[in-house]
């Protein structure tokens, strides 16, 4: 039956219905996203934690400490030296109650493709025990050579300190320093070397505070 309002009503319906269907679908998908984010939060946090503990294990020889390093932490903020506005976690390593080392998680903010998250273990006297890369977006095969082709590159940091080598040589060879760059990639090594040196500076001025 034709009513005067009929056709007009129909056109309005045909223009509104797709929008409603679209909005309903998107709302359902957003709800699904929130639900998945909720149930995956714990496994994702665990994955991150396991990467951190694997890196700690690689840095600290077993038997060199007797405290629960993962639990004995403080947070510090030093955007200038540690490369991030966020608080940086410091793991304190002790044996028989005496400080052995501190492991910091600074960020090299100027990687080729975004920030590089590092883990730097520094012995109490200020020499580096080791450096690990926790997370990065560097180009596979170029900037990311520290994890494949030049897997030993990060080892070069072990034993160095703020005065060894002297400050002006704390950079890549290309800039007159002591560190190798990678074939085809200078920015990544430069960023990591700079971040490690600044972490040493931070440690130097804040050492006693870190172990409190």
């Amino acid at each position: 039956m034709d009513t005067p309002g009929g056709p007009e009503h129909d056109t309005r319906r045909s223009s509104a219905a797709p929008l409603i269907a679209l909005a309903a679908t998107l709302a359902a998908l957003v709800a699904a996203l929130i639900w998945v984010a909720h149930i995956t939060r714990e496994p994702i946090a665990l994955n991150r934690q396991s990467r951190v503990s694997a890196a700690l294990e690689a840095l600290l020889p077993p038997g060199s400490y007797d405290n629960d390093v993962l639990a004995d932490t403080i947070e510090v903020r030093a955007p200038e030296l540690l490369g991030t506005e966020q608080p940086v976690v410091v793991y304190r390593v002790r044996k028989d109650g005496r400080p052995v080392a501190a492991v910091l998680r600074p960020v090299a903010p100027d990687g080729y493709r975004g920030p590089i998250e590092l883990m730097v273990a520094i012995a109490y006297d200020g020499t580096i025990i080791g450096v690990q890369v926790l997370r990065h977006n560097e180009t596979p095969g170029l900037g990311a050579q520290f994890e494949t082709r030049r897997a030993d590159w990060l080892d070069a940091f072990a034993g160095l300190s703020l005065s060894n080598p002297p400050q002006q040589r704390w950079t890549v060879r290309k800039d007159g320093g002591d560190f190798d760059a990678f074939t085809g990639a200078t920015i990544t090594p430069r960023a990591i070397v700079k971040a490690v040196r600044r972490t040493l500076e931070f440690y130097h001025t804040n050492r006693e505070r870190l172990y409190e």
Binding site: L29, A32, T40
Partner: peptide, 26 residues
């Protein structure tokens, strides 16, 4: 509406998949 829908729906689906991969195939 088609293009908008395709972009929004695929983005949400991929975001969900990405979370699942990060959790179980990290």
């Amino acid at each position: 509406l088609r293009f908008l829908t395709v972009v929004l729906v695929t983005t949400l689906v991929v975001a969900i998949l990405d979370l699942m991969l990060s959790a179980w195939f990290h």
